[in-house]
Nucleic acid binder design. Structure first.
Lengths: 124, 124
DNA sequence: AGAATAGGTAGGAGATTCCCTACGCGTCAA
DNA sequence: TTGACGCGTAGGGAATCTCCTACCTATTCT
């Protein structure tokens, strides 16, 4: 929904989305939540909370950050809310990563030095 | 140097490294610095600072965060310090990303629903 | 209906982030 | 040697993060 062409602002929205995703991933608890949803499938909040040494309301706030980054969705089931992994924003992270790939591959082949460009104004 | 097998603690070190990398990427200025070093090659601090509406000491602190995450290295050249992209830690991000890949691919093929597992205790 | 369960929100404390203005240190030019 | 340049660090302030303890609503069970 907040996809590639929402219209109007265009790139500004994308940048904000990107920022939310990277910010969401900047916390170890939230990354662990994503791993749990990936490895154990969709779960209600309490089941997730069992894995952490943190009160449930704190986890609720982490889930909110993940929701606003589009990394999880909730589906209400009675009085519970089943959280599910939404991996699509992670594809954008991979896209962001891609232009760097050749740099670490060069390093691994030991060719890095040869291909580095000097700043071309002066050297000591 | 702070690579895969520093010895002793093992996974603890890795987790701390991972955290530093994700934290470093959580800021748009720092991601832009990485992009500049990637697209324009190694540069001194002032050349980088020209791209930002921020005082140079602030950028220096961003560079420190990137250095401590292993994402850049500095090479002294006279009174200047040439910063260079070190993409290796980004390979670890890609490794982290990899187990999620099948999830967004499933979604794209519209098969997501079929493969989702229920929490297997009860449904409404 | 009343009690228990599931989970979100409010408000606050302490830590961290991100920017700033000084200022210090090393290097190059005059 | 003196001054200008390049860059890092110190210290501080505002904003944000991350955790907490209440507290509220919605649903289910008895």
């Amino acid at each position: 929904m907040t996809g590639t062409g929402t219209g109007g602002t265009g790139a500004g929205v994308r940048a904000a989305d990107e920022d939310r995703v990277f910010a969401a991933l900047a916390n170890a608890t939230r990354r662990e939540v994503l791993r749990l949803l990936r490895d154990e499938g969709p779960q209600p909040v309490q089941a997730l909370a069992d894995h952490f040494a943190m009160r449930r309301p704190s986890l609720s706030e982490h889930l909110k950050v993940l929701r606003e980054a589009g990394l999880v969705t909730e589906q209400r089931s009675g009085r519970r809310r089943i959280y599910r992994l939404e991996a699509a924003p992670l594809a954008e992270v991979q896209d962001w990563l891609h232009p760097y790939e050749r740099f670490w591959r060069e390093r691994l082949k030991g060719l890095g030095e040869l291909l580095d460009r000097m700043p071309d104004d002066d050297r000591p």
